[in-house]
Design a protein around this nucleic acid. Structure first.
Ligand code: FES
Ligand code: FES
Lengths: 143, 143
DNA sequence: AAAATTTAAGATAAAATTATCTTCATAATT
DNA sequence: AATTATGAAGATAATTTTATCTTAAATTTT
């Protein structure tokens, strides 16, 4: 469903939402260590998210990746969209060329409501909101 | 979520459930043509399912793949289990090492019920039942 | 017994995804 | 201006998944 890149990205962005600010920036290595994912791969992902203006970065000494207040107001689905594309949420789980209530595959009815709910969840909740759930200990981005 | 192999397998098994019997067997090429997937790849998948006794085959002239009545009584999840393994249904969608209500990731609550329902659907409905829905035109295995 | 047809098995290849490395540009500090 | 720390960009590599091919074994028909 989600690529490994998207998974890493979501966790990294939430990590930045929790800990970073314009004053406190993070290197890919710091983030990767914290959430236990490969650092050079994460670096690539962060670059790509920066290009799409979903996270922020400053290079040079004392530089790093961080989230502005504006960044934190975005819904998390921007991250998935930037990396995997939204079509991931609209594809048939059995690989049929279209997924619709009109031409459902045998598992469409079990699957479709949840694809919609997951997409809605990621679209409606801001990065900020989701990161607060993490800081409150309700959810986790590493174990 | 499901590998391409599993997707192809599910559709091919349902195709066999619909059309095959001990008297009427199908070659990988016939099935692949019918549901529009690559034939040599499907052949491998069918071999593997045969080894796990989920479908039946007879080789030599007039041979082919088919489903016995017993085969049709099995739940479809056997197919997924044989190819991908059931862990697919128990993994965290964000890649955390465990997925549990105790240590949920930020999207666990949106996702977990869906995984359970899908697994239940595939476990409770037999191949026979699901193929009947296809024959009644309620669902589709190709478009 | 020979020929024809079909699955089984294993080797190989292509493509996509995941991961790493190396060099360059940029910014702050000294 | 030189040094140092950092992200950006692009090349490369490893791994996994997907796909194909080739040969062998089995079964029926002739
Ligand atoms: S048609 Fe297969 S999931 Fe909707
Ligand atoms: S913990 Fe992530 S889906 Fe359950």
């Amino acid at each position: 469903m989600l690529s490994k890149s998207s998974k890493y990205a979501i966790r990294a962005v939430l990590y930045l939402a929790l800990h970073s600010s314009v004053e406190k920036k993070y290197s890919p290595i710091e983030i990767a260590d914290a959430i236990d994912i490969p650092a050079p791969f994460l670096a690539k992902i962060l670059q790509s998210l920066t290009k799409d203006d979903i996270i922020s970065s400053i290079r040079g000494r004392n530089g790093g990746f961080y989230l502005t207040k504006k960044n934190k107001k975005n819904p998390l689905i921007l991250v998935v969209n930037s990396i995997d594309g939204l079509h991931k949420f609209h594809e048939c789980l059995l690989g049929l060329p279209v997924c619709s209530d009109e031409n459902p595959c045998p598992i469409h009815h079990a699957v479709s409501p949840f694809k919609k709910q997951l997409e809605a969840e990621l679209s409606n909740k801001s990065i900020d909101t989701l990161s607060k759930e993490v800081s409150e200990g309700k959810t986790h981005i590493f174990l």
